[in-house]
Amino acid sequence: MSAVTTAPFPVRRAPVRAVGPRVVRNPWWVRVIFMTIALSFVGFFLLLPLVAVFVEALRKGFGAYFHAFADPDARSAIRLTLTAAAIAVPANLVFGIAASWCIAKFNFAGKSILTTLIDLPFAVSPVISGLIYVLVFGAQGWLGPYLGAGDHPWLGEWINQHDITIIFAVPGIVLATIFVTFPFVARELIPLMQTQGNDEEYAALTLGANGWQTFWHVTLPNIKWGLFYGVILCNARAMGEFGAVSVVSGHIRGETNTMPLHIEILYNEYNFVAAFAISSLLAMLGIVTLILKSFIEWRHMQAKTS
C-alpha cells in the first residue's frame, strides 16, 4: 500500500541518503539482534506455516494430492469461490472508481461521511457482516417474509410467484463477499487521486475533451497501477473470506461451501490431506498475489522515475 501512496519524488533522494551512514554507524551487534529478531519472526510466523501447508498436502504423495481436487464437492467449492470473486471484484471495481473519483475530485456535503462509511467493513468483525444479512434477508428477518412465494398485494406478481433465496444460497455469499471487500479498491485510489489533483483534468477540459474522454484518457491512465493493485488485494480477500461467508452459507456441501469453508469441513472429517491440498491452492493464490503486487510496485517505480 505504502509504495503506491507515498509516490517518491526523485528530487528528495539526496536527504534520504544522508540517513545511510548513521545506520551503518550502529554497533554491529545491534544490527545482528534486529536482523535475527526480524528473520526468526518471519520464519516462525510466516514461512513455517506456509511450508507446513504444502508438506501436509503432499504427505501421501501427488496421487492423493490431486485426488483431493477430483472430488465433486471440492470442485463445487472452487467454482463457488471463483463465482463469488468474479461478481464481487468487478462490482467493487466500479464502485471503487466511482467513489474515489467523487471524493478526490469534487467537494460535496457528506463527503467525510462517505469516506468513513467506506471503511466500515474494515472496522467491523466479518461475523457481524454476515449476521446483518441474516437479520435482513433471513426467514425471520426484516425482508424475509416478502422474499418467499406468497400473497403480498403490494409486491409485484413475479415476486409473489417466486421464492427468492438470498441467505444460505449463492446470492448471500456474493453479498457478504462484496461487503467485506468493499473498501479495497476505493481505499487504494482515494489517496492516489488526491495527490494527483485536478490539474491534468482541467487541462483536458480546456482543450475540449468531454467528461468521458477526460476520464478515459487522463484519469484512468494515471491511476491504472493503483487500480490494478486494489483489484488484486480485493480478489485475494474475496477468495479467502471465511467469517462472513460462514454465517450466510448454511454449509450445504456441493452447493454453498466456498473453498475456505470446505477446508474446515475436510479438516473436521479427519481428511487432512484433502484439507491441506485445498489450502495449498489458496496459499498459491496468496503467493501469486504477492508476485503480482511486487511486479506492479516495480512497474510503478519505473513509470515514476522514467
Binding site: F168, I252, R253
Partner: peptide, 20 residues
C-alpha cells in the same frame, strides 16, 4: 441428498432463519 453439518443448536437456528 445434500448434507449440512454443524452444532445442533446452530443448525436449528439456520433452519429457523430459512435454510431450506
Amino acid at each position: 441428498v445434500k448434507q449440512s453439518h454443524g452444532g445442533s443448536g446452530k443448525q436449528a437456528r439456520s433452519l429457523i432463519d430459512g435454510l431450506q
